[in-house]
Design a protein around this nucleic acid. Structure first.
Lengths: 215, 215
DNA sequence: TGTACATCAGTGAACGCGCGTTCACTGATGTAC
DNA sequence: TGTACATCAGTGAACGCGCGTTCACTGATGTAC
């Protein structure tokens, strides 16, 4: 063989990783196979040695992005007391940094609407990763019964990603910052309300914006 | 002239109207000029007698869809007492009917993320219509000072459209219905909390799902 | 250890196709006389 | 009122281009002997 055993896997992973950035930036149909390969330092002809089709790469790239977000949240949250965890996720999500850098941000606001229109196969792949993300969020909400925690996780993600979409439509000026702030307040006050056993100071600490970027 | 004075305007309006449906269904790049013209009962060659470019049609079609939604809400709300208005909008928005018929639904969950990536011109046109929609929503919230009403409108729309995107990713099964329900509850309980002067029964009435479709 | 061969990740030209856009033309109707 | 002409919304062929995909080929390396 021309290359070491892991070489192909590494190349494959590099394509997926770079593509996951570009697709979040440009949309699921916003960039072509040739440019995606160029991003990974290759020419387009080799593409089909790694993927059955462009769609297959989109699925992998999307899954990669979702796994990264979920994993990043898990790390972010691992060092915090339970009652601050959801707030920490929210505060890292609803920031100008995240709004202005979709390529390294959450795939749901960037690609959700588009992927929901794709083939059933693609949509289901997306749905499965979304489900994992929701489960991860719900598992951070320990002071509510599972069904309520699940509902809160859904509502929180919906508000967070919806806020990001609205903020991106509004550009990156003051109006857009206000949108982020409105979303942040809404989702944090809801968390505080559901989380009725938490002390007020816990909530106040949670409201402070995170300095770390995005999610 | 071959046709009556209003003929061209009528044709133009018909193209925009049909396109606004198809674009919401298929995405801003999901359908071509030829098919859009066919939808309006015409051939593709006549397109440029009506629009400078495909992008110009996308802008008009998007504006049309946004105006329709805003106007529909205005009508829906006009016959209701103030404290039921926001809830009525939410209940008509977060329904399986709306989820399953994006072509006649709100353009924000269908096209928002995509349009935010378009040219500044397109994005700003979208942003202006979004602003009108938010103002309309905020004007329904009369028991809060303007700044708070604005914030609540932003958070409400973010949650509503985010919920719709998540529900569409999840398909149209039970899991998807649960997502709609979680979004509905979150946004209605927030409205009830802000709307602290309203009587409990007002809130209870508001929580009942609407039978009318979408928004 | 040295040599011949097999492998296969990656190259780059070429393909067919659909797209947005252009353009010469059509033909029904309004207008001038 | 009747006739010749001008208008212009709409037609359909054609354009250039970029895309996803295919394919014959390359050449560095692992393997067999």
């Amino acid at each position: 063989m021309r290359y070491s055993k892991e070489h192909k896997l590494e190349t494959h992973a590099r394509i997926v990783k770079k593509a996951s950035v570009r697709l979040r930036e440009k949309g699921a149909h916003g960039i072509g196979v040739a440019d995606l390969m160029k991003d990974a330092g290759l020419t387009h002809g080799g593409f089909y040695a790694h993927f059955d089709s462009r769609e297959a790469l989109v699925i992998e790239a999307f899954a990669f992005a979702m796994d990264r977000s979920t994993e990043r949240w898990r790390k972010l949250v691992s060092e915090l007391p339970p009652q601050q965890r959801l707030a920490a996720i929210v505060n890292s999500y609803l920031t100008p940094t995240h709004r202005d850098d979709p390529g390294r941000g959450c795939a749901v606001p960037a690609l959700g609407a588009e992927i929901a229109r794709e083939s059933p196969k693609t949509r289901r792949a997306f749905a499965a990763k979304l489900e994992q993300m929701l489960e991860m969020m719900a598992s951070q909400i320990i002071d509510a019964p599972p069904k309520a925690a699940r509902k809160q996780a859904v509502a929180t993600l919906a508000t967070m990603m919806g806020t990001l979409v609205l903020a991106r439509i509004a550009g990156s000026g003051e109006l857009s910052d206000d949108i982020l702030e409105a979303g942040r307040e809404a989702v944090l006050s809801r968390a505080a309300a559901v989380n009725s056993s938490a002390k007020p100071r816990a909530r106040k600490a949670a409201v402070r914006p995170a300095t770390k970027p995005q999610a």
